[in-house]
Amino acid sequence: MQSELKVLFGRRRTWALLLALAAIPILIAVAVRLSSGVPSGRGPAFLDRITQNGLFVAFTAMLVSVPLFLPLTVGVVAGDTIAGEASMGTLRYLLVAPAGRVRLLLVKYAAALAFCVVAPLTVALAGAAIGAALFPVGPVTLLSGDVIQPPEAAVRMLLIAAYMAVSLAGLSAIGLFLSTLTVVPVGAMAATVVISVVSQIADQLPQLEWLHPWLFSHYWLGFGDMLRQPVLWDSFGSNALLQAGYIAVFGALAYARFTTKDVLS
């Protein structure tokens, strides 16, 4: 496990992904700083609050990165789990070491989850840092109109990061399964990202309303519920349950596929 994390976070690619994520809040903050001001109510939620409070950079960046950037980076990491090892040929050496297929799968998924935790955290921290550097930092107005002090705002930000980490866990499980199907990591990555986009589009179609509560992306934007007073935990709970379902289904599929698979690469 430790070695898996070392490999994941020792890679330049992982750092490039995290840097790209960190670039989102920085871009937003710089753009807002350079522009004359954002008319209220325009653009993504929270954008107009940034000039008053730098901490909103983190919230805005989170909102912007949820639909594509976070799933993209998670898709790259999750799609790479098994297929990446297979394409490098190291999978066969791990298996004859012997790592054990189930154990390898679990370790790989755990590493992907670790990335799911780190990725939103990167957005939040980079956002808070750049926000604090370019704008005043003060009490934060919640959606409910209540005002909280920066230390509590930091807690809320961590809650949001946790919410997103949970949100991405299901997608990681899908990526893990897709990764066991192929030896072409790019294929598994692309398929994972495409599935996340399709799920979000389906979530917008009223004709598919019956399907909406079953889409893994359904609660992604529910992280706003962490910004209410009091915190609305319903979506967190529903989201966690939904993601657990996805983990169970795709975990079982990945297990079935990977333990019966001939490693020929």
Partner: peptide, 26 residues
């Protein structure tokens, strides 16, 4: 509190004070 996606509308009453708040346009 009317819970909208990433927004909220509030009505708060204490005694004779009533506040309306919409987070969308603050």
């Amino acid at each position: 509190q009317v819970v909208d996606r990433l927004a909220e509308r509030d009505i708060v009453r204490r005694e004779s004070d009533v506040w309306f708040y919409s987070s969308k346009d603050n």
